[in-house]
Simulated scan of single mutants.
Amino acid sequence: MADFFVSLLQNKSMNFLAHLYLSKNNKNILIGNFISDAIKGKDYKKYPHEIKVGILLHREIDTFTDTHPIVKKSMRRLNKRYRHYNGVIIDILYDHYLAKNWSNYSEIPLELYAENVYSFLNENIATFPEELQHLLPNMIQYNWLVNYASIEGIDRVLKGMNKRTKGISKMDLATEDLKLHYLEFEADFTAYFKELMDFTTEKTTYLLTK
């Protein structure tokens, strides 16, 4: 479990809420999107088609995000002390803005959405890679998706991530950056996420036809 978290941090993929939301109403794509970080290389090919689409979609979202100029601008707002953890921090901060402004993106209240997602994922947990079978109960217990909406919740997440890097990442200090550039980060997220939604819609349609 600890090793998997470290892997997530190293590979910059901590924006769980965004990945789940961008799966839209396709539950198989949602499963693929959720388990993607635990699926290495071409191992995705052993899964049913729509789950494969979710796995590949997750990878496409990560690539889109890693190379996006707005995301890079957000990273430059951060203190230089975080080094290669900048991307992880921006993932988490962007999920904060998605959660905080959830009503702009969904008619379903975030609390209900999270409850439904937790329930569905838990029903399918036996089919997940072992790492996710350990991660999901923690996500549910600490209600990550809803807690992203508050600065206090994000602060707890960042402190937890810092502990998992044994203090090397200094991510526990990133709440200071969030507060210092709060409106700028929010503007970055809003512009970026609009483009990401359009990209994801097109990419999902393409992957489903392959």
Rank of each mutant, 00 (worst) to 15 (best):
L8M: 11
L8G: 09
K52S: 04
I55Q: 09
D37H: 08
T175Q: 13
I90Y: 12
K166G: 15
A191R: 15
T65C: 06
T165R: 02
N143L: 15
I140T: 02
L158M: 07
V71A: 02
Y118Q: 04
E202Y: 09
H134W: 12
K203H: 06
M171W: 07
D91P: 04
K166S: 15
E115Q: 04
L57D: 07
I29R: 01
I90R: 08
A126V: 11
K52D: 02
A114R: 09
F64G: 02
K179I: 14
Y105R: 11
L180Q: 04
S106Y: 06
K40Y: 01
S106V: 13
N86L: 03
Q133M: 01
H49I: 08
T190H: 14
K170M: 08
A191I: 11
T63D: 12
T201F: 12
H84W: 14
Y148K: 05
L17W: 08
F5D: 11
K73H: 04
Y142K: 05
I125W: 00
K210F: 06
L145W: 02
I90Q: 03
K170D: 09
K72L: 04
F193T: 03
N25A: 07
A191F: 14
T201K: 08
A38R: 01
Y85T: 13
I55K: 15
R81V: 03
K72G: 15
K170W: 00
G32I: 06
K166I: 10
L207D: 01
E176F: 14
E107A: 14
Y148G: 15
D198R: 11
G41Q: 08
Y94C: 15
Q141T: 12
Y82L: 14
I29G: 08
P48G: 01
M75H: 08
F120Y: 09
V88M: 03
N122T: 13
K170F: 09
K45L: 15
R77T: 06
E115M: 06
R76S: 11
P109M: 06
G167N: 12
Y47T: 01
I39G: 15
E107T: 10
K166Q: 14
Y105T: 08
I140Y: 07
I55H: 05
W144T: 05
E152P: 05
L93K: 08
G32C: 02
G32W: 00
K170Q: 05
L78N: 00
Y47L: 06
F189L: 11
N138W: 14
F64N: 02
F120L: 10
D66R: 02
K166E: 12
L8C: 07
L158K: 10
V157A: 05
K40F: 12
K52F: 03
F193H: 07
T175E: 05
P69I: 07
D62P: 05
F34Y: 01
P137N: 11
E186V: 10
L98W: 07
D155E: 15
D91T: 07
K203W: 09
L20C: 11
K52Y: 01
P137M: 06
N116K: 13
E184P: 13
D66T: 00
I61K: 01
L121Q: 10
L78C: 00
L112W: 13
K12I: 02
I140R: 00
W102T: 00
G160P: 10
D43M: 02
L22I: 10
A18W: 10
I90G: 10
I35Q: 09
K194D: 04
